Amino acid sequence: MLGILAAIFGLATTTVAAQDQLVPGKNVNMVGGPAVLTLNPFQLEGDPNLQRQNEITLDCSTRNPLPGTGESAGDAWLGFYWTTDGGARWRSFLHPGHPRDPNPTHPLKPYQAAADATVRCTTNGLCYMSGIAFIRGNNQPSAVFVTTVIDNNNTENGFPFANLGTTVVATSNSKFLDKTWIEVDRPRPGAQVMNIAAQNGVPAQSFPVGVVYLAWTEFVGNDNNVRTKMMVARSLNGGISFEQPVKVSEGYP
């Protein structure tokens, strides 16, 4: 009897260990979906010009495990990717505010290029995307920003994410702001409540939000004395606004 139990126990242990192993799936081209390019009105989907993509970042919705969102830095602007079937198929667009965006009031409209994307998803389907925007050249303006989107989980085949807006967290007229990184806490007791108005058939939503932390590097000095400051800012209201940035470290030659 002991021998039988030992054999059964050993088999169960082996099975669990096998289940814990990672099983790689096939590679999927995230920009390989529909390719659309029209100039008037301007619309770009997919990658009709086969441009370079790099620095990918990815996270999954907390309202539904199948939808996911990602960003990458191509040449000159950030791409926005989404899937509703666990990554089997993707569609991609430019992040709003690019030079051909017909909306002249978008906060990123003054800038020529954007890069260094990071994505973090948190409770209630919220996802935060951070990045840098800048004008090319020496001593030109730059900025760091956060875009907030929400997975409304309201469609089987369509686009479930709604863009809640972009917040420019910090700007500089001459210092280069670089390499953002974002993290978000879960809602704690006493957390502020985010209120989202009803739109496009989605009912109004109201829920507490966790603190959003954004870090980035600020290059200071000159060509002969380059050094950096590490800056951090936080948002208590779901990325709508950020507190004054704080310097947490500074490198010296």
Rank of each mutant, 00 (worst) to 15 (best):
F145W: 15
P65R: 03
D151C: 06
L177G: 09
T13Y: 03
Y111K: 09
G68D: 04
A114M: 04
G201C: 06
Q244G: 07
T38E: 14
N152T: 09
T155W: 00
A35P: 00
T105Q: 05
D223I: 09
F93E: 13
G239E: 04
G158T: 00
Y81Q: 02
L58F: 13
G221V: 04
T166D: 08
E218Y: 02
K175Y: 09
N154F: 04
G158Y: 00
R63D: 15
P208H: 00
E156V: 10
F93P: 11
A162V: 10
G238N: 01
A117K: 00
P208R: 04
Q19T: 14
G221C: 03
P245V: 14
T105V: 12
G33S: 06
P24Y: 07
D85C: 06
V226G: 13
S235H: 10
F134M: 08
G210Y: 02
S235I: 11
L50P: 04
A162E: 08
T13E: 12
V169Y: 00
S130I: 06
K179D: 03
A198Y: 02
G238P: 03
V246A: 00
P102L: 02
T69Q: 07
V169C: 03
F176V: 12
E218L: 05
V169I: 07
T166C: 08
P96M: 11
G87S: 11
K26G: 08
P245W: 05
N237K: 04
W90N: 04
L50H: 15
T228L: 03
G221W: 02
Y128K: 14
V211K: 14
Q43F: 15
A35H: 06
P41A: 05
A191Y: 00
N237Y: 04
P99T: 09
P203G: 05
L126P: 12
R136M: 10
S172Q: 13
